[in-house]
């Protein structure tokens, strides 16, 4: 029974790792700011899944508490991130980061 529980948490953590890598790949490979931002959210959700799975494996409430904090931070990031994307879109009529090339040297 205990062995089964550990295996279960491991599976969830593996899934979370895969989600995290998908998010990372999305952020590095896509060029639409909204999609990149969604990828970051996916990474944060992978973090949440890891926390919950580990909390379950350890029988500890701390991981579940951490998830709440990560959710709050993610919400704050959404507020600021979308505002920045909208602000850029108003000036340039595009959300592609390839067009953000004013700064370089």
């Amino acid at each position: 029974m205990i062995a089964a529980a550990i295996v279960t948490a491991d599976w969830y953590m593996t899934l979370a790792a895969v989600l995290f890598l998908i998010g990372m790949a999305g952020l590095l490979l896509r060029n639409n700011a909204l999609v990149m931002f969604m990828s970051v959210e996916l990474m944060l959700n992978a973090v949440n899944l890891t926390f919950v799975a580990a909390a379950r494996a350890h029988g500890d409430i701390g991981g579940q508490m951490a998830v709440l904090f990560v959710l709050v931070v993610a919400a704050a990031e959404v507020a600021v991130g979308l505002a920045i994307i909208v602000s850029i879109f108003r000036i340039r009529r595009t959300a592609s980061v390839d067009d953000l090339s004013e700064l370089s040297g």
Partner: peptide
């Protein structure tokens, strides 16, 4: 300034996600 904010935001959020994933693994 907008462009700077966008780049800072995307890479900063990316870095924060990596950081807290590290925290989650340490917790695991």
């Amino acid at each position: 300034g907008d462009e700077a904010a966008m780049k800072y935001f995307l890479l900063g959020a990316f870095a924060s996600a990596i950081f807290i994933y590290g925290g989650a693994l340490a917790y695991a």
